[in-house]
Write a protein that binds this DNA or RNA. Structure first.
Lengths: 218, 218, 218, 218
DNA sequence: TATGAATGAGTATTCATTCAT
DNA sequence: TATGAATGAATACTCATTCAT
């Protein structure tokens, strides 16, 4: 496929897109190093090899840049969870794989966790990213978690039940990551990943057992 | 008891203390609305009806004000957990009471949750409150959680086991609160408090059952 | 003499005077350590064991304190020069003794030099010490230098000539002290005191020789 | 030469340079009026017709501005001394010319003297311009004085001797300028320039005579 | 597209001084 | 006399954003 065709189909990496990408790369590093409030547009521009003013040709504000960086992170998260689920042999395995992939993505990439936690401050800060952007990001997060609920349904859980399980897993992971990330878990001399593994295994087993009790043939 | 006696005993609310208190009240509101980094001394002073310079007669820095506000919150949390535990009839009840008191304190006082979450940004932002203040706040948090571990031990858990349970409960509560607070739980149409109750009940029952298996006479 | 009599004669060290003295002692240290601009009233008050506001019962302003500290220094300078001159056997000796005493006072007490140099910035700074105070300090400085001119006259110089010599000596001393004090003389690897000694000796010898030529009998 | 050519050769006064120059002009006036510590960035900006923030596009800090203003002054001083020395017919003339040019530069430009005196406060206030800037300025001063030593060597003085002479002249000039500048010389009804002339002439003659005694053929 | 220059609002903190108590 | 509290002005410096070029 020629570039011309690709362009007509809107799938090209235009120079404009590439520049945006480079700016986002730079922004990611700065946000990760300094936090959302700590990162200055000047620093991002510098890291990208631009003047601050130049960034305004590519993004409408500092918040827009942040939103895009965060979105990329959530997309990667979704991909990782999706990839982990694919090869699993049965529902229970899929459940565990999805949950642990979610957890491990952030355990392995603590800087993405920093990014993501901003989502949890948006509620307090009225002048955050703006409602629209916030909802879009929410959707990406929900999508990344969906495989957990799907796996539960596959095992036999009702939709409602599956959702609650998903929320529980999300909450437990978020809490453990919070503790681990801020070194507060060290304060209790515990290993976050072991705790998460145990939690997920327990929940998966419980669910499976209950389903077998309900429908022994399954 | 007359004011004079109170004074002699050093328990008076001196005018100085009262002013400090009023400033802290104002600061609390501003910190809650803006976060530590977002809140400006000027805003706090304004809210307290003071000039910025005047605050320095009462607190040595913005960070000192923040630390004090946060500490008050953690102390209240500890008191609430302590009060909840006291009347409980047995270990299992005490465990549930402590865990739910912890959770409900923050569910009922979402503004304290905002405050508390600063603790969870210390890892990212090392130049926050300073090591000393940070450790003091950590200690207050740990103290508030301690009754959970104590109750587990009372039920028969080993010390190590009790600690892990405490961490699990803490993590689950933190995660659920995070979700609820940022309205991300609504996205899953679930009730945080129900989820927490179920989680705590399960864990308490599990522990009790296991203990009975080990030592049927207990 | 009883205190009552002393008091009637106005020579007592009243409590008020003593307190002033203690404040001045503290101020001296702070001014010496921080410079006039660098020293804050708060620091002086702290060093004196007072509240800033309290100092205003003893001095009308920060500048008033500074002026008084500086005056004390100039008085000490005058005393030292006077004491050095007294035992000298003849005019030439007196000349050398006075000049070197002046120089050495500041060489030995570099902090007094810092104090004194303010005099040399007052001209630039309109809101310095105020004209009146400035003139009083000038008078003390002039008095301290007078013995140099007197010695020259004693040797036989005309009044005009003696004054010029005094100015020359003052200037040379000031210049060397400036260089030495700011370590700029080290940049030239020279010893300020040797240079001063040589300069004074030369000038004294010159004068004496010329006087002998004029009036061989003297 | 057209502007285009000048531009190609990089010798143009770009608009940027011109603005810098205007800011420096404004700064010079403010520094002269207020001193380094006394001068505020706000005042400089105001005098230059700018917002304080705008200055940071041209200079990295207040100290940087000061350093540049002072450096310009020292460069001018060096040029004046160099120009004065050039046409002199012999060593003794060169010595006198250099010394008097140094003196007269400051006598004619008392504002540069104010600037230069900062160099003499570095010893007391170590956190002034920073070591690097300080050393650079020192070098410019030393360069401006060098012709004095060179002339002495030309007359026949040993290197060591020449250096001491240079220091002496520097010190005497500095002292006289100090006195004249702060009007303390008027207090003695003397003329600074006459005193300096006499001092320099005496020293030059002394040196020349001594050299002739040592080596009559010279 | 990109820049350099500029702005105006903002930051925490310090200062000398005042004044009611 | 002395204090504690307060003020208002000042400090250097940073920020996101704008705009003419």
């Amino acid at each position: 496929m020629t570039a011309a065709i690709a362009h007509r189909q809107g799938r090209t990496r235009t120079p404009k897109d590439m520049k945006r990408g480079l700016i986002l790369d730079a922004a990611r590093q700065v946000f990760l190093a300094e936090g959302l409030d700590g990162a200055s547009l000047r620093a991002i521009a510098l890291a990208a090899g631009y003047t601050p003013a130049a960034l305004y040709f590519h993004f409408e504000s500092k918040e827009a840049i942040y939103a895009e960086v965060l979105q990329e992170s959530l997309v990667k998260l979704g991909q990782r969870v999706g990839a982990a689920v694919a090869p699993a042999s049965c529902g229970a395995e899929r459940l565990k794989a999805a949950a642990m992939a979610f957890f491990e993505f952030y355990a392995d990439n603590p800087r993405d966790l920093d990014l993501g936690f901003y989502l949890f401050r948006g509620g307090m800060r009225p002048k955050g990213l703006g409602r629209e952007r916030d909802e879009a990001l929410n959707a990406w997060l929900a999508a990344a978690l969906q495989p957990i609920a799907s796996a539960a349904i596959e095992i036999g859980a009702a939709e409602e039940e599956a959702k609650l399980l998903m929320v529980d897993v999300f909450a437990h992971a978020a809490g453990l990551l919070l503790l681990a990330h801020t070194r507060r878990i060290r304060m209790f001399e515990a290993s976050a990943i072991e705790l998460m593994t145990r939690y997920v295994t327990d929940r998966a087993n419980q669910l499976q057992k209950r389903m077998r009790d309900v429908d022994p043939e399954a």
